[in-house]
Design a protein around this nucleic acid. Structure first.
Lengths: 146, 146
DNA sequence: AAAATCTCTATAGTCACTATAGAGTCAAGT
DNA sequence: ACTTGACTCTATAGTGACTATAGAGATTTT
């Protein structure tokens, strides 16, 4: 049962380029090649890629995933590390949520400041942004990844 | 009243390199230079940089900020656009929060699966990550900026 | 005068991809 | 046999918002 990269992409809901990227990053082992130099994948690759995608859907970084894969690959080790890693990740997510909620409060406050005046000059929002009442580095980054 | 880039950095809580970066990106106008080619900033720059940093602390992207600065620079325009931009940003933040909360539920579920077994092999967490029960691209990116 | 600090430009790296260019491979249709 | 189209290959550059580095020059302090 050998499938090509496009089929693997379809099965895993992951783009072809991303699969090659994971290979380059050492998350996926180099697969066999066909006569025409096409990558040929088997069951093990499919399962491993699904594992990776699942972790990504949980917003883990590639290096976290690398660590998990490492643990999975030597199954004699203690399970505690897996736990620790997950725990740390949950905490990160929690911190990010609370930072965002605080952020949102500021934004909503700001929105109230617009009196509906015609000119930008008189708009309370821009004025609110001008004088710094609250200083604080937000601990979050934007960008939505598809 | 002319200050150098290091002082501006201290006043704005923003690194020197970041100030130069904003200049390169067109958010800050090119300042005057001293005899020794050092950048010299005045009040207007200070205020503008504070505006930018405030917007950044609200997690706005540089292009959102560029738009706001553009509106600020021609104050004859309608204030509605400022409102629209802010509204859109609030919605983005809301979406991100709800995506993260869903994420967290999955992670906590997963944590429960570890039975405290000694070996990684038997750990329910890794098994939980292996079979994909929930598929869904999370709409978030990690990384904490500080 | 020497040392320490600050500033300059230019370039490369971060993360997890995405996009592009230009070429080769393969299966189906004519 | 030939062409069309879909698929695959490698290599390189771009994204966003910076951060890090190298190597040089300016200024301030000792």
């Amino acid at each position: 049962m050998e499938i090509r990269i496009g089929d693997l992409a379809k099965r895993s809901g992951c783009e072809v380029v991303t699969i090659r990227y994971y290979e380059k990053e050492g998350l996926l082992p180099k697969p066999a090649r066909s006569g025409g130099n096409f990558r040929l994948y088997g069951e093990a690759h499919i399962e491993r890629l699904q594992f990776i995608r699942h972790c990504r859907s949980l917003d883990m970084t590639l290096s976290e995933i690398r660590a998990l894969l490492g643990l999975r690959d030597n199954p004699m080790q203690d399970c505690g590390e897996v736990n620790t890693l997950l725990e740390a990740h949950i905490q990160q997510v929690e911190m990010r949520v609370s930072a965002l909620l605080q952020l949102k409060r500021h934004l909503v406050d700001l929105r109230e400041k617009c009196s509906g005046s015609r000119s930008v000059e008189a708009c309370g929002i821009l004025q609110g942004l001008g004088n710094c009442n609250y200083h604080g580095e937000s601990a979050t980054n934007s960008q939505t990844s598809g």
